[in-house]
Structures are given as C-alpha cells and as structure tokens.
C-alpha cells in the first residue's frame, strides 16, 4: 500500500524542501509587480517616514492652539488671513518664487541651447562646469554670496570702489535685498533647468529641423514651432518641480537677510521658523508653511494632467 502513496505526500527531504522553496521564490521574483514593489520599498519607506508622516503631522499641528492642547480647526489659518505681515510674506514669497523660476527657466533654456551647439568634444567640460552651483550645498554657497554682498565689506562694492563706482546697499535696502535673494536662487537653480532642457533638446529628432530648413524656417521659427512643442512636457515638469522647491526655500533668505530689512524678504519658510521655533507658536508656524500646499497641489494636478495627455498624443 505504502508503495502506492504519491511521492508528494511523503515528508519531503531537506533537499526537496530547499528546491521547492527556491522554486517558489524564483516564481515570486519572476513576478514583475513583486520585483517592482521590492525595489520601490526602500524609497516608499523613506517617502512615508520622511515626507508623508511629517506632512500629516504638520497638518495636525496646524489645527491645534498655540500650546498644542486644544483642537481649533482652521483657527490658525483664519487668524493669519487677518494679519498684514502674513500677506506681505505671501506677496514676497510669490515675487521670490515666480521671478526666480521664470529667470531660471530662461537662463536654463538659453544656456542649454548654447551648450547643445558646442562641438561635442568640449561639451562635457562645459556641462560639468555649469552644474557646479547646483552640486555645492546651498547653505555653503549662500554663505559665499553673503561675503560677496556683505552689508559693510562687500567684495563687489570693493571692486566697484576700485573703478570709482557706487556703493550698493545689496542687503540693507529692501529692493536690493529682494534682488539678491532671487539672484542667488537663480544662480543655484539654473543648472537644474539647463541639464533637463539639454536632455530634452538632444531628444528632438534632427529630421524635424532638416524638414523645417527645407521649408525655409528661420532659427526663431524652428525654436517656436519645433523645439518648444517638443520640450513642452519637460518644461512643465521642470517648472512645477522648481516652483515647489523655490516656494519652500529657506536657506538663502535665512543666511542672506534673516527676513530683513523691515521683514521685506521674509518668505513662508523663514517666517514660519520665526513664528514656530523662535516664538514658540509651532501650530501657527505649521499653518504658514502649509499655506501654499493646496495651491501647489492643485497646480501640480493640472500640470501633470496636461503632461499625461500630451504623452498619450505622442
């Protein structure tokens, strides 16, 4: 009788068990979704632990009173809307972020074209050099800029003085201070646009330009009717990404001006720090830092929807 028992019902030997397990794991690993999930797991953990959880916690904090003992709903936001300084910060943040992103995009696209038209031999060197501002830690490079723009011992002013030029109040006069914070942001962020646009430029089929040339298109017409439409998705994603990051900027203003003079360079993050950490009102600080979240969130949805639609058309 025992001879008729199928082999699979008998307790398997260790070698067989090992073989079966190997087989199962092999099949599991062959599943593309499992593999993808496993590869994404570390990133998901980081995103969950360092982005999603803090964001949810910040939202929770923003709904509490100053001492974090009572739930007050949107009370902090309602209060902020009545404050003149808050609206000044909103205005400055918008000026800072929009101007910086537009300038970064312009500098990026112009530089990308220039680099793209360089001979292949020297192009790599230029690409590397132009990326330097982007790879230096921001607070460190901003400190360098602070020394260049120092209110009393500015290196730029020293140079101007050598040619009998004017002494410019880089950081001590509101409009100059605004200009300087934007300048440093553009200096730091433009290489990101450059590299993205350069990659996009290289993916535009050469035949399109050749066809346009046969039709007698000028350089401007080629840019307007071929390059720009072909780069639209990259431009949209780059601008969106940069807008989010620039609205959240902290280092530049903190190091250069601390929000001064006269609160004129405060942006969301620096003012949130003043309120939340320095003045001990963490819920109000959280509310300030979250103010742009819904606006940027909705913008992101629309921009990404456009990108997806154009992707399908292609």
């Amino acid at each position: 009788m025992s001879e008729t028992i199928p082999r699979r019902l008998v307790t398997p030997t260790p070698a067989e068990t090992s073989g079966a397990l190997k087989g199962s794991l092999y099949r599991l690993s062959r599943r593309r979704s499992t593999t993808a999930f496993l590869f994404a797991l570390p990133l998901l953990s980081v995103v969950g632990g360092l982005i999603v959880y803090p964001a949810l916690y910040a939202i929770y904090l923003s709904l509490l009173n100053r001492t974090q003992t009572k739930f007050i709903g949107f009370g902090n936001y309602a209060f902020l809307f009545t404050r003149d300084t808050f609206w000044a910060v909103v205005e400055q943040s918008c000026i800072f972020a929009l101007t910086a992103v537009i300038l970064k995009a312009l500098v990026g696209i112009v530089t990308a074209h220039l680099v793209n038209n360089l001979p292949a031999k020297g192009q790599r060197k230029w690409r590397g050099m132009l990326l330097i501002p982007w790879v230096i830690p921001l607070s460190l490079s901003t400190l360098g800029w602070f020394w260049l723009l120092d209110p009393t011992y500015s290196a730029f002013n020293w140079l101007f003085a050598q040619i009998a030029g004017p002494r410019i109040p880089w950081l001590s006069e509101p409009n100059w201070a605004r200009f300087c914070t934007i300048l440093v942001n553009v200096w730091y962020g433009a290489p990101f646009f450059l590299i993205m646009y350069l990659a996009a430029l290289k993916s535009v089929p050469e035949q399109l330009y050749e066809a346009a040339a046969i039709d007698g298109a000028s350089a401007w017409q080629k840019f307007l009717h071929i390059t720009l439409p072909m780069m639209r998705n990259v431009i949209a994603i780059t601008v969106l990404f940069s807008l989010i990051v620039t609205f959240a900027n902290y280092d530049i203003v903190r190091v250069l001006t601390s929000g001064g003079p006269r609160n004129t360079t405060h942006i969301f993050a620096t003012w949130a720090f003043q309120l939340g950490i320095a003045s001990g009102d963490i819920p109000l600080g959280a509310s300030v830092s979250l103010f742009m979240f819904p606006i940027l969130g909705v913008s992101a949805i629309f921009i990404l929807r456009g990108v997806r639609r154009r992707g399908r058309e292609v």
Partner: peptide
C-alpha cells in the same frame, strides 16, 4: 550710524569694531 546696519547680523557690529 555705520553703513549697512539694516542688514547686519550678530557679527556685523563685532566686525565693525575689530576693523
């Protein structure tokens, strides 16, 4: 007052005296 004081951080006055 000294020039640039509206943008001085906490090291501004130290540097001014030391200079």
């Amino acid at each position: 007052n000294a020039p640039g004081v509206y943008a001085w951080d906490d090291s501004g006055n130290n540097k001014w005296l030391i200079s």
